[in-house]
Simulated assay, not measured.
Amino acid sequence: MLAEQTRDEVFEAELRAQLELVETALLQSAEAQTPMVTEAAQHIIAAGGKRFRPLLVALSARLVPGASEADVIKAAVVVELTHVASLYHDDVMDEARIRRGSVSANSRWGNTVAILVGDLLFARASDVVSELGTDFVRIQARTFSRLVQGQIAETVGPGAGQDPLDHYLQVVADKTAALIATSAIFGAMIADADPVLLQRMADFGEQLGMVFQLSDDIIDITSDVTGKTPGTDLREGIPTLPILLARRSTDPADARLLQLLDSDLRDDDALAEALDLLRRHPAVDQARAEVERRATIARLLLADLPPGPARRALEELCESVVTRSS
């Protein structure tokens, strides 16, 4: 037991050291020709973040011995730069004022600069991924295509006759799950995993990405205990899993909730009433059940992976994503 704990402690120390190298490489990748552009490009990176995607790269790479640390760092930089670049564009489209506790780039430098900085970071991600080889470039390009198509689908909304919930789940898959799946694939590829393991990690990352976003949907409704401002998506009229499930209700008792969901929720009293009704609505438990269903699939995908600290860490990561919304 003591030897096992020691292996885990060494594993965690090595992982932390590797992620610190990723952090340094991220800032270096965002350096530009002028101080102003460098500051703007490093703005979101310097504000911190979960670094969920780099962590997934690093853990996946440790499932099989022998992964090159230099390549792990490059792959982690690629996925995080891609994620950060998309945030610059998202904030412009959403007219966001705050990002990660700081003034958003579009608020500070304007929309045009924010869009161009996002483009710069996408370009830097493409430059770094080219050092890993054509297979990585191909996957990155296809992932980027999914990100863009997901954003377009979200912007346009469901088509005539399309189920809004099915549409939303596809948006989540493309906008969020795609890059998380790529993070898992990249790590396994660097470790020279066999095709079976590569597919397993692709499927795991896709499910984990869905769990990641759908958990956030629930947190937006139930976030009094998480420290996050509740009802942000609700106030902005963003369709999320609990809201879409509640909208399917035909119960006359839900008439007031449905009326509020169609109203202007910038009013604090109206928002508070809508949140109260939603928190007591079966839709929240239904949303939690969907998150747990997908998390169970993700856990089962890990069951046959090589045993050891990396697999345990992936299992714990999956569990942490689920429990934060419970």
Rank of each mutant, 00 (worst) to 15 (best):
G133E: 14
H83T: 09
F52K: 02
A181N: 07
T24G: 14
S326K: 09
V196K: 14
N106M: 07
L265E: 04
V10H: 08
R288E: 10
Y168K: 05
D166Q: 08
L257M: 08
V128G: 11
V117S: 03
E273Y: 00
P242D: 08
T143K: 02
P35C: 06
S325F: 09
D254K: 00
A255G: 04
A76G: 15
L260H: 06
P164A: 06
T226G: 04
K74E: 11
V77I: 00
Q5G: 04
G187V: 01
A202S: 14
F204G: 02
N106S: 14
V225Q: 15
I190P: 07
D217Y: 10
L302V: 08
G187E: 07
L169P: 03
G133C: 08
R138E: 14
A67V: 08
A173R: 15
L302Y: 05
D94H: 03
I139P: 00
M1Y: 11
M210L: 15
Q28F: 07
P307N: 03
I238C: 04
S104D: 05
I238S: 10
D220N: 13
Q33D: 15
D251I: 03
D192N: 14
L165D: 02
A181R: 14
T112F: 02
P282G: 02
R62E: 08
V211P: 05
G110W: 05
S60Q: 10
T176K: 06
L261K: 02
I98R: 07
V57W: 05
L277M: 11
G187T: 08
I221V: 15
L27S: 05
R142A: 10
